[in-house]
Structures are given as C-alpha cells and as structure tokens.
Design a protein around this nucleic acid. Structure first.
Lengths: 121, 121
DNA sequence: CTCTTGCTCAACCAACTGGTTGAGAAAGGA
DNA sequence: TCCTTTCTCAACCAGTTGGTTGAGCAAGAG
C-alpha cells in the first residue's frame, strides 16, 4: 500500500492553504522559489519548506537555473486524488439513485440494509 | 474566503488513511460507529474522534437510532475537492498542450511564439 | 578573488494531531 | 428499578507540523 501512503501525503500537502496557492500559481506557469515566496508574509525559508513538501509528494519538481530553482507543477499526481474522490462519490451517488428501488423492495418485507456489504466495483 | 478554510479542513480530514477508509465504506452504505470501528485495531473512542472530524467538515452526518449513531456519507463535499483539483489540473494541462503547439509550430514554421512561462503575479 | 543573490539546512518552539484510558450520558432490556 | 450497550467527553502523552532565526552553500557580478 505505498499508494495509500502517497495518497495520504498528497492530501496532507494540499491541506495547507499556502501550499494550495503555490500549486494554483504553478498551474499558470513555472516560477522560482523567490517568485513564489514574494506574496506571502512569511520567510523565504518557510516557503522553501512548503515547496519541499510538495516535491516530496511528487506534486512539484525543481530544476536549476544559476542560483535559481524554478518550480514546475507535476499535474499527474492530482489525478491520483481525483481518481480516489470520484470513485467513492460515484459509488455513493449510485447508491442514492438506487434508493427508489430499495424503498420499493423494503415495502414488501421490511428488510433492513444496515450492515455494510462487500464493495461494489 | 470561508470556502478556503473548508477546503483545507476537508483535505486534512482525508489525509488520514483510517478516515479515508471510513469514507470508502460509507460510500457503500450507512453504518454505525461500532460497525465502522470493528475492523480497526484502535479503540472505539479513536474512531469516534475520526467520525467527529468527518462530520465537522461536512463529509458525514449522524442520526439517532436508539443508542446507535448511524453515519451517512454526504458526498456533495467531495465535489468541492474535485472542483479545486480539476481546475488547476486542467489549467496546467492546457498550458502543457499549448507548449506542444508552440514547439510543433516552431518546427514547421516560425509562428507566433506564445509564452511558455507565465510569471506568477 | 570578493560580494551579492537565491536558496537550503539545522535547531528550536508553539500548536495541533492521533492515540490512550477513565468517566459518564443516553436509551432499550432485564 | 438496575444493567447493558453504544457512544461521546475530558485529560493526558508522544509525534508531527509550520513557523522562526542563524549559518552556509552555489553561482553570477564586480
């Protein structure tokens, strides 16, 4: 379950508003650490740490340009989250849409569907 | 914006593998705290705390059934995350595809050189 | 070479998190 | 009525996190 750990770390990385903002700005184009740090009211070191977290989870990659470290968004990792979220959202929605059928069946014998059964797909 | 804080808390809530698993299981159907706690190797109180976090961010709602507290997945909140993620993933991908266009056009004929690097603000 | 710029590393600190145990509330069953 | 089940609250503890400052490395500029 290395994937599980990866997912946890990506969710945790994006739980911070500063890091989410960094990702949002990198979606518009690559930027150096200094560029990214400029708008925030914290030290450059703090932003550097944020970028470190983002690179650790694979959301951002860094190259070299003289003293500068341009940051680049690796958008593929975002698909990992979307895949997880959409899977269960769809599953829940499908169950919701089947509610009419369930209610109809409950009408005949009062079957109680409390205990969760095996996963669908 | 208040939405920002909500988003941070939902991401943080799903950064925990146990809570993600709870959400996954609730997608298959409602369950009580005891049902949800059963498979895990932690105390019921710990699971109760996890559920508290999920309800605080609006991912889960709880009703009453005698002593039991059936939990229900509120899948709408998941859309909030998907919206955020997809927005920037698409933006990054669009930029990426535009870069391919530029490179392709540069290879065929020297057309309008669009910016491949958008400086952030 | 020295100076400046751009960034990271290291140590430290306050706040938060996920776990524990113990106590207790709420509601049905004996 | 008292007992049992189900769940939450409170206090506490260890580990993590986001911030700070200070030092230091890498590379172009003078």
């Amino acid at each position: 379950m290395a994937d599980d750990d990866q997912l946890s770390r990506v969710f945790a990385a994006l739980a911070d508003p500063t890091r989410r903002d960094i990702v949002a700005r990198l979606a518009a184009g690559d930027a150096t650490v200094g560029d990214l740090a400029a708008p925030y009211d914290v030290s450059v070191q703090a932003v550097s740490k944020h970028i470190r977290v983002l690179t650790d989870v694979g959301l951002v990659s860094q190259t070299r340009d003289a003293q500068r470290r341009p940051c680049h968004l690796e958008a593929d990792v975002l698909d990992l989250m979307t895949a997880w979220i959409e899977r269960y959202r769809r599953q829940a929605q499908a169950r919701y849409e089947r509610l009419d059928d369930v209610l109809a069946e409950m009408g005949e014998d009062g079957h109680d569907p409390r205990r969760s059964r095996g996963a669908a797909s």
